[in-house]
Computed example of a mutant assay.
Amino acid sequence: MEKTTCLLLDESEKDRASLISLLKAIDFVEIVGSTNNFKEGLTLVNELEPNLLFLDVKGDGAAAYKFIEKIKKQPTIVFLTDDDANVKTFSANRLHYLKKPVTAEGLTFLLNSFQQTHQQLADKMKGLLGQLKLEN
C-alpha cells in the first residue's frame, strides 16, 4: 500500500510535536515536512506535493485561506482548530478538520476515512481505464 504523505503547518511547536507523535504511530503515513510559518509552508507544499496538509486555522482563517490560494497542486487539507465556531463551519461544510488538541482516536478515524475514500477512487479509475479502448 502506498504511503499517505503529510505536511504540517502549525504555529504551535507543542501542537506540531503532538501531531507528529500521533502520525508516526500510523504505518501508512509518511511525514514529509513540518513548519510554523506560511512562507516556508508554501515552499514545502509546492515542492513536496503532499497528499495531506494539516493546516492550523486561527480566528477567521483569513491568512490560512490566502495561503491555500497560492498552492499550485492542492492536497487534501485537514484544518486544525481550537475554535468552536470554526469547528461548526468546517462540520457544516463537510470539510476535513480536527479539533485541537488532536487525539489519537480522531486522527485515526480521519486517516482511515481518507485511505478508504482514495482507495475507492483508485478502484473506480482502474475500472474506467479498463473500459477505454485506445485507437491508433
Rank of each mutant, 00 (worst) to 15 (best):
D60L: 08
L22G: 00
L8K: 07
K133L: 10
P101R: 03
E105F: 06
S91W: 14
K126T: 12
F79L: 10
K66L: 11
N51M: 11
F67R: 03
D10R: 01
F67W: 03
L9W: 01
L110S: 04
E49P: 13
L52G: 01
L23T: 01
S34F: 12
D27Y: 01
E105Q: 04
T117E: 09
G61D: 11
L7P: 06
K14I: 15
Y65S: 10
K39W: 05
D27K: 05
A25F: 07
I20E: 00
L9C: 01
G127N: 11
V32D: 00
E69C: 00
L80P: 02
L129N: 12
L42K: 07
V32C: 06
Q119G: 05
A63W: 07
K73V: 03
N86E: 04
F67Q: 02
Q131C: 08
K70V: 13
F38P: 04
Q120H: 15
M125T: 05
T43D: 06
S91L: 15
K3I: 04
I68R: 14
F67N: 02
M1L: 10
Q115N: 15
G33P: 08
E49K: 15
I26L: 01
L107V: 01
L129F: 10
K73H: 12
A92N: 10
P75M: 05
G106H: 12
L95Y: 12
M125I: 14
D10S: 08
A25Q: 15
G127M: 06
G130H: 09
M1Y: 11
L134D: 00
T89S: 09
E11W: 02
F109D: 10
L129Q: 13
V29A: 14
G41M: 04
A64I: 09
I77P: 11
